[in-house]
């Protein structure tokens, strides 16, 4: 059902890390790329150098790529197509009363 990035094991001195950066307060962390580092602390330092050089962020997360479980491209149809004809999931059946702001 899913594919897991192949674990390289403890023998890999510099495994892959995925980097997430929050651009500013109030926004969610977004995936920006990946890098190699021997451990989390070094990964964080490298992420600072690689992805926040131009003040792109106020917070960084690094996650071992091996810890991420991803949906498989082969199962795209089974995963996502069933949502295509379920229009009732979209909030389009409500009438908005007059004078309601900020909706």
């Amino acid at each position: 059902m899913s594919e897991r990035t192949e674990r390289t094991g403890a023998s890999d001195p510099s495994p892959l890390w995925e980097v997430f950066v929050r651009a500013r307060r109030g926004l969610a962390h977004s995936h920006v790329g990946s890098l190699h580092a021997p451990d989390a602390e070094v990964a964080l330092r490298h992420a600072r150098d690689l992805y926040t050089r131009r003040q792109e962020g106020v917070s960084i997360w690094v996650v071992p790529a091996s810890a991420i479980t991803a949906s498989s491209p082969d199962e795209k149809d089974a995963f996502f197509d069933p949502a295509a004809d379920k229009v009732y999931r979209h909030p389009t059946f409500y009438e908005v009363p007059e004078g309601v702001a900020h909706l």
């Binding site: 510099s14 190699h36 580092a37 330092r45 490298h46 150098d49 690689l50 050089r53």
Partner: peptide, 11 residues
């Protein structure tokens, strides 16, 4: 030793 360190040292 690796590309990431290359950039760190250049920084």
């Amino acid at each position: 030793p690796e590309m990431e360190e290359d950039i760190a040292l250049a920084n």
